[in-house]
Nucleic acid binder design. Sequence first.
DNA 1: CGGGAAAGTTAGGAATGCCTAATATTAATT
DNA 2: AATTAATATTAGGCATTCCTAACTTTCCCG
Lengths: 242, 242
Amino acid sequence: MKGGKRAHLKLEQLPDETLTGPVEDYLKTIYEIGRGTVSVATNEIAQRLNIAPASVSGMVRRLADQGLLGYERYRGVTLTEAGRRAALRTIRRHRIIESYLSQALEYPWDRVHDEAERLEHAASDELVDRMAAAIGEPVVDPHGAPIPSREGQVDETVYLTLDQLGTGYGARVVQVSDDDPEMLRYLAELEIVPGAEVVIVSRAPYEGPISIRLSGHLLAIGPALAAQVMVEPLTDMDAPAH
Amino acid sequence: MKGGKRAHLKLEQLPDETLTGPVEDYLKTIYEIGRGTVSVATNEIAQRLNIAPASVSGMVRRLADQGLLGYERYRGVTLTEAGRRAALRTIRRHRIIESYLSQALEYPWDRVHDEAERLEHAASDELVDRMAAAIGEPVVDPHGAPIPSREGQVDETVYLTLDQLGTGYGARVVQVSDDDPEMLRYLAELEIVPGAEVVIVSRAPYEGPISIRLSGHLLAIGPALAAQVMVEPLTDMDAPAH
DNA sequence: CGGGAAAGTTAGGAATGCCTAATATTAATT
DNA sequence: AATTAATATTAGGCATTCCTAACTTTCCCG
C-alpha cells in the first residue's frame, strides 16, 4: 500500500469520459480567467457564465470530486492538469471553428463567436482536425487569439492593452476580445483589427479619450474600448516613420 | 366562449421557443417512422432512440402538451403541423450537414451520420444556409435522402427496395439507409451507391441471396441488406442493354 | 481589533430526461 | 369469451444544472 501510485493511470487518462457542455464551459472559463494557474473566484465564474453564484459552488464541488479542479471552500478554484487539458481542448475547438467559419464560410467576424460557442461542444476531434487542415492549420483565430495545439500547448504571452501604452509609442494590434458583436463591428469599422499598426497620439486624463493614428487616419477611442485591444509595442526598428 | 380560436396564433407560432436536442430527436424520429402522417407506436420510438419505452411515455405527453404531438394513451402519436415543421427543420439540418461534411471536408460517407447527429442540434440556421450555399444547394444527402426546403417541403416518394424487385428487372439505386457505418462501407465496396444501376439476375427462395448485375460484375447479397437499398425501377427506355 | 460589506456557501426546489419495477390496456389465440 | 402475450403506462428514483433565500466566512477599514 505504500507509494500510492497504483493503476490510477488507466482511470485518469481515459479520454472517453465525455464532458457535458456546461462542464466544458466551466473549465474553459476558469482557464480564461486564471490562465490555467491562478486561483479563480467563484463569483467571477458566475459572472462570466451568466449564472447565479450559488450554482457555481455546487458545480465546482462536483468538478473537484472528478479531479478536474482543485477547490477549497471560500478560497477559489484552480485547474488540475486534467482540467487544464480539457479546457485547452475546448478552447482549441472553439478557435478552430471560429477560424473555419470565418475563412471557409465567410462568416462575419462578429458572429463567429456565438456559433462556435455552440459547435465546440458538438464537434468531434476528427471534424475539428479536418477544419484546421482545410484552412491551412491556422495558429490564431479571427480575433488574434492563439490556437492551442492538439497536445495542449498554447502561447500564453500576456500582452499590453492599448490603454496601457504611453503617448508617442507605436504598437501592432495582436488580439481583440471576441464576445461582444457590437464592439467587434465597431472595431472593424475603425480598422482596429489584428495586424493593424497604431501610434498613440495623445491621452486625455480622467478616463478621457485616447487619440491614435492608424494608417493615416486619426481617431479617438474611450479607454474601456482600448482596454479590450491587446497590442505588441513596436521597437524603433519596426516602427513606422513618425 | 364559443368559437374557441382566440389569440393562440401568437403563442403557437413563436419560433424562438427553442427545442432541446432530445426533443428534436423525438420529433425527427417520429417523422421518419410515420412519414409525418401515420400514428406511431411509442415502443418503436423507444427502440429507434435506444431508450426505455417508459421514458417515451413521459416525453410524449409533454410534447403533446406543448402542441407538437397528437397523443392518445395506448394509441400512439402523430405529429401536429408544428411538430412536423420542427421535425423537417431538424432533418434539413441533418442532411445538409451530412452533404457539407462529405463534399467540403471529404468526410467518408459512413461517418457523416454520427457527426451530423450531434451538429444538427447546435448549428444555427445561418450556418446551415451557408453550408448549403457553399456546396451548391444540394437536393439529396450523400445517401440519397431528399433534403427538405427551408419552407418544409420535401419529396416523400416511397421507393421500392431492392428485395422487392422481380428477377429480370432493372433499377437505379436512389437511396440507402444511413445509420450503420459498417453496412455503408460494405455497400460502397460493392458499389451499391445512389445512381448505380442494377439488374436482378436471380432470387433464391427462403430468404436466400439475391444475385444482381452491377456495371458488369455479378454479386449476391442477402435480403436483409437488399431491404436497406431503395431503388427506382427503370423503364425499358432507360434500361441499359441486357 | 471589531464590525460591516463583499464574497461564498448551504438549503430547498424546479425542469429535463433518463432508469427499473409494477401495473394497466389492447391484441392475439385458441 | 377467456387467457395469454404484446404493448404501453404509471410510480418512484436519480443525475444534471439551474434557481432564490438565508446563512457563513473572509476581508477591509477605521
